[in-house]
Write a protein that binds this DNA or RNA. Sequence first.
DNA 1: GCCACCTTGTTTGTATACTAACAATAATCG
DNA 2: CGATTATTGTTAGTATACAAACAAGGTGGC
Lengths: 164, 164
Amino acid sequence: MTRIESPIVEVDGETPADAIRRGRKPAESYVLEEQVGFLMRRAQQRHIAIFQRIMGEDGPTPTQFAAMAKLGGGEDISQNQLGRMTAMDPATIKGVIARLAERGLVERRPDPDDQRRVRVRLTPAGLEAMPGLTEKARAITAATLSPLSREEAERLLALLARLD
Amino acid sequence: MTRIESPIVEVDGETPADAIRRGRKPAESYVLEEQVGFLMRRAQQRHIAIFQRIMGEDGPTPTQFAAMAKLGGGEDISQNQLGRMTAMDPATIKGVIARLAERGLVERRPDPDDQRRVRVRLTPAGLEAMPGLTEKARAITAATLSPLSREEAERLLALLARLD
DNA sequence: GCCACCTTGTTTGTATACTAACAATAATCG
DNA sequence: CGATTATTGTTAGTATACAAACAAGGTGGC
C-alpha cells in the first residue's frame, strides 16, 4: 500500500477545463472530478490509506476499530445494536465481529434474557489494546485533516454531519 | 433498501454528550461520531443509497458510471489509464469493466500499438445510454447536496477537494 | 392465550477496494 | 544491442457494504 500523498486519478487525459474550452457547453458538461460522490470517494481512499499506515499491518480496520470504540467501556452490547451504533447493517457487523473474535479482541455469548441476541464485548486483550489504539485513532484523524486549518476542519465536519 | 432519510447509527446507547457529562475528560474521550472517517463513511452510505434509488434497479453503480463518464466522448482508453482517471486501482477497474462489458455497455479490444494494453470504449448501446444517465447523475449530485445551501455545498466540495 | 407483527441474527449473492505476486511487453540507458 | 527497469494487465486473498430471503425468539392486541 501507501500512496498516501496523492492517489491515483487524473493524468494523461484532458482536464475538465480543457473540455469546456474545447467547446462543450457547461450546461451539457459533466465533470466527474467536481461531483460530491467522486470527491468523497477519493477523500475516503486517502483516509483509509492513512488509517492502515498508522494502525499498522495487523491493526484493526476502520470498521473494526469503530466497533471496538463502542465497546470501549467494557459493556456488552447486542450485535445488531452495535451495528446500528457504528452504521453497519446486520450482515456487515456480523463479519466485522467474527473477524475481531478470530483475533481474540472480542467475545460473543448468548444473552440470558433474550435468546435471539448475541452479546458482544471486548476480551481482556481487547480492553488492554484500547488506549494505544485510541491514541493512534486520534493521530489518524489529525493526519487526515492535516491539509486543513482548524477552522476549515471544523467547517468540514459540520457540513459532513449535515449530510446524514 | 431505502432508508435514505437517516441511516442507521446511534440509538439506544448513551450519546457522546452523555459520556462527557458522565465524567470522562474530553482529553481522554474519543467520540466516534465526531471523527472524519466516520462522518465520511456515513455521508458516502447515504450518497450511494441515493445513487441506487435514482439510477434504478439495473442502472450502473457509482464506479461503473464514473468509468462510463470518462468514456463518454466515444474515445477508447486503456484499461489502466481509465482506472487512474477514475481513481480505481488496476484490480478494481478490471472488475468494473468486466461487469460493464457483460451488460453490453462497453467493449474491449487489444491495442494495435502496444500489446500489453486493452483499449476500452463504449458500445453504441453504452453511448446511447449516456445522456439519460448523465441527467440522472446530475439529479443524484443535487439530491446528495440538498441538505445544504448552494454556498455550503460549494464550501464542502472545496474542502473535500483539498483532502487529496 | 393466540396470532400478527417486529426484532434479531444468518446466509447467499453482488460489487467495491486494495495488497501482493506474477507474466508479458515496452522503454531506457549504458 | 542487451540488461535493467517500468508499465500493463491478471489472479488470489481479505474486508467492507448492502439486498433479499429466511428462521426463530419476543410483544402487543384482542
